[in-house]
Amino acid sequence: MEMTRLQKYIADCGVASRRKAEELIQQGSVKVNGIVVSEMGIKVSSSDRVEVNGSVIKPESKKVYILLNKPSGYVTTVKDQFRRPTVIDLLKGVDERVFPVGRLDYETTGLLVLTNDGDFTHKMTHPRHEIEKTYQATIAGTPTKDEIHSFESGLEIEDYVTSPAKLKIISTKERTCVIEVTIHEGRNRQVRKMCEAIGHPVLALKRISLGKVTLGNLPEGSWRELTRDEVNSLRNS
């Protein structure tokens, strides 16, 4: 009988990403055969009874891959302790339990992928897999050539230096401009912090592509299934 690490089993059940599953285990929210498990490394099989927060879970037989155009005002989690709207609330008609691949912050809009495929999520979010993420931002003021060079070369933010990035000015107005930013990392509020670091705070932010997958003309708040080619392109990015 095939044995699987508990955090991977939880992810395969569509409950949470593997990283989030590890947090659930550490918090004591997971039981195996009636016993609370709080340490990593345990393996389970399909014959074991696994519960998360009191609910028995089973691996999803059908893998689904969803592209959502996230509106502002939604959190990128399955559940929110403050009872704010979550991106899951927007997935009307999706029967499978899915979870977000990575995050967009509360105010940020645009492309978000959700799935119940734990292996896919692990590959997409692992630091060594540098998938390009492109954003369109409205910022205060207009960056100078020197500021753009600093942005693209790497900025010291908090306790890290950002990896090389791209910044292209799309259009300008008297006090604001629209830029396109491409990064490889996925740190918390990174684009906002990078723009702040060069003196041009973000006023609005939207993710428009992930690897070769683009948002296209999908209306805000709507979702569609990723095509097989899109899923494969993300796997191979």
Rank of each mutant, 00 (worst) to 15 (best):
M3G: 04
T4E: 13
R5E: 13
L6H: 04
Q7P: 09
Q7L: 10
K8R: 06
A11W: 03
C13Y: 01
C13D: 04
V15Q: 04
S17M: 11
E22N: 09
E22K: 05
I25R: 11
I25T: 09
I25S: 07
V30W: 06
I35F: 04
V37K: 05
S38C: 13
E39H: 03
M40W: 14
V44R: 06
S45H: 07
S45P: 03
S47W: 02
R49A: 11
R49M: 04
E51N: 08
V52C: 04
V56G: 01
K63R: 14
V64G: 08
I66L: 14
P71N: 03
S72N: 08
V75Y: 07
V75H: 14
T76V: 11
T77Y: 07
F82T: 15
R83D: 14
P85T: 04
T86L: 01
V87Q: 12
I88M: 05
D89P: 08
D89T: 08
V94T: 14
E96A: 12
E96P: 06
R97M: 03
V98T: 02
V98P: 06
V98H: 03
F99A: 00
L104Q: 01
L104Y: 01
Y106S: 10
Y106V: 12
E107W: 12
T108V: 04
G110P: 02
V113L: 12
V113P: 03
G118C: 13
G118D: 14
F120V: 07
F120M: 07
T121H: 06
T121Y: 00
H122V: 05
M124T: 12
G141Y: 01
T142Q: 03
K145V: 14
I148A: 02
S150K: 14
F151S: 11
S153V: 00
L155H: 12
E156R: 15
D159G: 11
S163F: 04
S163K: 15
P164C: 09
P164T: 00
A165M: 02
T172R: 15
K173Q: 13
E174D: 13
T176L: 12
V178F: 10
I183A: 10
H184T: 11
H184P: 03
R187P: 14
M194G: 01
E196Q: 09
A197Q: 12
G199W: 06
G199N: 13
L203T: 10
L203Q: 15
I208C: 05
T214V: 07
T214S: 14
G216W: 10
G216R: 08
L218W: 05
E220N: 00
W223P: 11
E225N: 12
D229M: 02
D229R: 09
R235F: 13
R235D: 06
N236W: 04
S237Y: 07
S237F: 02
